[in-house]
Amino acid sequence: MEKPSATATPTPVAPAEPAAAAKPSLSGETVTDSFGNPDFYVTVAGDTLAMVAEVYGFSEAKIAEFNALQPGTPLTPGTRLRLLPAGPGIGAMGPATADANGIPTSYTVVPEDTLAGVSYRFNVTNDQLAEANKVPYVHEVGNVYFIEPGRTIALQKNPVDSRSGTGKAVENSWGRGVFYTTVEGDSFDSVGYQFRVGTDELLQYNPALAEPIPAGTTIRLIAGELPLPGAQGTFTADADGVPLTYTTAPGDTESGIKARFGVTILAEANRPSSGGSAVWYRYLQGTTGELVPGQTISVSLDEPINKPGA
């Protein structure tokens, strides 16, 4: 008797995943700042607050708040929607200026401002703030540069020649430019924005420098040979002129040394070979960060100095 054929077990099929909702697209004009950050959007037929909010990464309620609207308000074509706060807010209560397009251009810091408040109000990142103000890092001068009451800070950068910035740069081990050889189209602004050094500093480090800057000009980007307050000592450098070691003088401080030589964290090049201290070099007793004079310390990660801690 013939056996009945086995019935094949059907292969289980996974339930279909729901199709991801397509992100809406917008065809209206976006008005951007000097960094390319979107600050305004001009609506076209069919746009909704919800669509605009999703495209630009906000909640509908937040876009409505920026524009003094209620969520769900129908949009008329040609409406210019703000994509950043309309005025002062927590952490950024001071006065600001704007250009003819409404793009914020400068801000005067008031007491109780915060860096987060300023960057949020004006839709710029910390790094962009540092670039606009031609300072190496957003936390400058004891972490108060951008929140020092009374200081007016730039929120945008000026246009620069598209040919600029392609010259040869010599950097130290911290990634900071030490020298730069210019190309056609370079200017105080283009060099300043790229290497985070202000025009006043460029002229201080390069007294003969003037605009227009001839192509092929080698510009010093750090103080280096020029003593600064808190860094009055002598230094050694490699064949390219990049500082390697520094011998402290009376009155020297870590902040002064870092400013003079474009150092990020001085301790990283001067870790103790033993002991529990963060650095091996010594401070004067009873001072606020003043170093003992006559110590030769490293200002280069490529050639660190490691000695037993004090």
Results as ranks from 00 to 15, higher is better:
164 S>G: 11
147 I>H: 09
162 S>R: 13
150 G>T: 07
143 N>W: 09
158 N>S: 14
138 V>D: 10
146 F>Q: 02
139 H>T: 08
156 Q>Y: 05
150 G>Y: 08
138 V>Q: 07
136 P>H: 01
138 V>E: 11
157 K>Q: 14
163 R>T: 07
138 V>P: 10
159 P>A: 14
146 F>H: 12
155 L>R: 05
148 E>H: 12
142 G>W: 03
133 N>S: 11
143 N>C: 07
134 K>F: 03
148 E>Y: 14
134 K>W: 00
136 P>E: 03
137 Y>N: 13
146 F>T: 00
139 H>M: 04
158 N>A: 15
156 Q>M: 11
154 A>F: 09
150 G>R: 05
162 S>C: 00
135 V>S: 08
141 V>H: 09
158 N>M: 10
148 E>K: 11
151 R>P: 01
159 P>D: 12
148 E>G: 01
140 E>H: 02
147 I>L: 10
151 R>F: 04
161 D>I: 02
158 N>F: 10
136 P>S: 03
142 G>Y: 04
160 V>F: 04
138 V>W: 13
164 S>L: 03
148 E>C: 01
149 P>I: 04
159 P>I: 01
160 V>T: 15
145 Y>Q: 02
153 I>Y: 11
145 Y>M: 01
163 R>P: 07
145 Y>I: 02
154 A>D: 10
135 V>N: 03
162 S>I: 06
133 N>K: 03
152 T>E: 12
161 D>F: 06
156 Q>H: 07
161 D>K: 04
149 P>L: 09
133 N>E: 10
143 N>F: 12
141 V>P: 02
160 V>Q: 00
144 V>C: 11
144 V>W: 08
157 K>E: 03
148 E>A: 13
158 N>Q: 14
141 V>L: 09
137 Y>V: 10
152 T>R: 12
150 G>I: 01
147 I>K: 11
161 D>V: 02
150 G>W: 09
144 V>G: 13
151 R>Q: 06
164 S>V: 05
161 D>A: 07
159 P>F: 01
139 H>F: 15
137 Y>H: 12
145 Y>A: 10
155 L>F: 05
143 N>Y: 10
142 G>T: 00
139 H>S: 08
137 Y>L: 12
142 G>I: 02
159 P>G: 05
156 Q>E: 15
135 V>I: 15
134 K>S: 14
154 A>R: 14
155 L>S: 04
135 V>C: 10
143 N>D: 15
